[in-house]
């Protein structure tokens, strides 16, 4: 679901870099307010590796084949570290796999990273809203919601961008149908990523609960 080079007009790519630059600055500012900003770097670094590899894990969902994104998971576990982690992961994916591109790095980072930050806040709100439930239910359902919604928002942004900037010379109806088909194939992926986020959060809560706390 990465936007490749050359399919978006230049102003959109530049705007993408601007939004990404601002969000990176904001995330780093938030991280700097923690008492020990480097404490979560090992966790962020390992999840960057997972995010980097995840895009090459393809799941065939007819008629399309989609790959894991894991941006909701990144947000849930990393909080503000998620945005720089997504940015670095996308840069490496563009260079190593050719997924996405360097000119669209800004657009892709904003498309996946900002939903990751929203997923982090959603995880917190949902946990507070369900605090009268048992710990496992509250954690599990919040993580599922964050993982699924994080990806869902990224798909919505992708849909909006690709539909608004259909290049000239394309059969717009055919391309629109193809884009909608791909977006529909991401609905099962939302469930998969939500479930994966929930399982991982419940597992971490059992073996190393301090990893779920934001410093």
């Amino acid at each position: 679901m990465h936007l490749p080079d050359g399919l978006l007009p230049a102003p959109v790519c530049i705007a993408g870099f601007a939004v990404t630059g601002l969000t990176t600055w904001y995330s780093l500012k938030q991280i700097n307010r923690f008492s020990n900003p480097t404490e979560s770097i090992p966790k962020a670094s390992l999840l960057t590796a997972a995010f980097f590899v995840a895009s090459s894990i393809h799941i065939p969902i007819p008629p399309a084949s989609v790959h894991l994104i894991l941006n909701g998971l990144m947000g849930t576990l990393l909080g503000y570290y998620a945005f720089p982690a997504v940015l670095i992961g996308l840069f490496l994916q563009a260079v190593v796999f050719g997924h996405g591109g360097l000119t669209t790095l800004g657009v892709n980072a904003a498309m996946m990273g900002i939903p990751a930050l929203l997923a982090y806040h959603l995880f917190g709100w949902s946990q507070r809203a369900t605090r009268h439930w048992s710990t496992n239910w509250s954690l599990g359902s919040s993580a599922f919601l964050a993982g699924a919604v994080g990806l869902g928002l990224a798909v919505l942004v992708f849909l909006t961008l690709t539909l608004s900037f259909l290049p000239a010379g394309l059969d717009a109806n055919l391309e629109r149908a193809a884009i909608l088909g791909l977006a529909l194939a991401h609905i099962p992926l939302m469930l998969i990523e939500g479930a994966f986020t929930a399982i991982l959060v419940l597992f971490l809560n059992r073996v190393k609960p301090q990893l779920l706390k934001q410093t």
Binding site: T38, E39, I41, P42, K43, S45, L46, T48, A49, F52, V53, S56, L92, V96, F97
Partner: peptide, 21 residues
Amino acid sequence: QQGLLVGSVVWGCVGTAFFFA
């Protein structure tokens, strides 16, 4: 080559994690 590239990147991340941990 692809495997080596992926391996290097992953090891870079793991190394960073070890360094800060």
